[in-house]
Design a protein around this nucleic acid. Structure first.
Lengths: 180, 180
DNA sequence: TCTTTTGGTATCGACTCGCTACTATTTTGA
DNA sequence: TCAAAATAGTAGCGAGTCGATACCAAAAGA
């Protein structure tokens, strides 16, 4: 019996139970995952393509999913001036509320001893990094740990895009992230 | 920023990436999860109801999923003599082959240091136990750790069902499991 | 026996998901 | 400069999940 497979199966089972029990609003698992990503990504990383790449699905599916979120009142489109093709989605108040709602799995994990939580997060992050590397995926880290991030100006500055960041944005996920 | 939510999101993301990359045969995530469960459950625990409860879905969906697996040649029905209503599904050769095939996420996890793997498995198991307890779910442990398990006879004996086990079955998941 | 419970299905509507095809809007490079 | 290629988003198809409801048959209780 292989233990490495066992861990993978455990992960899948937990995710599945989370989908079955983590009920806030009338959201299905994918819609909820997209919503959670939107709440943690910066303004340059909230297009259908980016969410799709982050969640390992296709642009087509994510396009539909995001429009479903808009239809349900959890998100809104915002057209970019720079590139007329791309759209940046942002959460509405209802969207923020849905993301911050209580969740059985999160509660269960929150009740674990702190050292177990730390070990768990560490192991999962390492797994994710290896898996993404094997798959040619992006790192999707946060601005503040990025090689292009500068702390000079008010809310931080991105030297790749040559733009100042909005308040709080240095703690958000960016599609262009490059480990410093 | 809440870390407990972070772990839950990591778990979901890994499961999602696994679904997107873990490609053996023409199986979708649910079908693969069901197949994996069948390969690890004993003969009394392979009915649609049991798989549904284990994976946190409904009997209706699992009924369809299992029939899809039969249609694709990965599983076969076996009617029970004792209860004419219930069905025990078992893997075909193709089913066993699909389950044992390589997988990017499993490989990634397998490449982690042994102590990280151990901590990861421990944390996930604890989370799962708490989540299931909060949800009134079963434990789904293996025969050999069960209060009803006796090692006297050839392959072990189940004192709950009053039946001798088949070879290797004491290492399989049972729906009636009760921690010894 | 008659009723209730249990195990498995069928069906409906909303949705994911992989795929292909298509339209706009950049970007490129000769 | 200006046509070709890459990129961003979408539409639509077929298979299938998923929650819900409704059924039927077998088993268990009263």
């Amino acid at each position: 019996m292989r233990n490495d497979h066992g861990i993978r199966i455990l992960i899948n089972r937990l995710a599945r139970i989370d989908s079955a029990t983590g009920w806030t609003g009338n959201l299905n698992p994918t819609q909820r995952a997209a919503l959670e990503y939107l709440s943690e990504a910066n303004q340059f990383s909230r297009s259908p393509s980016h969410v799709a790449e982050y969640l390992g699905t296709t642009r087509g599916t994510m396009s539909q999913t995001l429009k479903a979120l808009v239809r349900k009142g959890y998100a809104a489109e915002r057209r970019q001036k720079s590139d007329q093709r791309s759209i940046s989605y942002e959460l509405t108040k209802a969207g923020v509320a849905a993301v911050t709602g209580a969740n059985p799995i999160a509660d269960a994990i929150g009740n674990l001893p702190a050292n177990v939580q730390a070990a768990l997060e560490d192991g999962l992050l390492q797994s994710l990094r290896l898996a993404l590397a094997a798959n040619g995926g992006q790192s999707f880290g946060k601005c503040k740990t990025c090689a292009y991030h500068e702390t000079g100006s008010e809310n931080g500055f991105c030297t790749l895009l040559g733009l100042g960041l909005e308040a709080g944005e240095s703690d958000k996920i960016c599609i262009e992230h490059k480990e410093a």
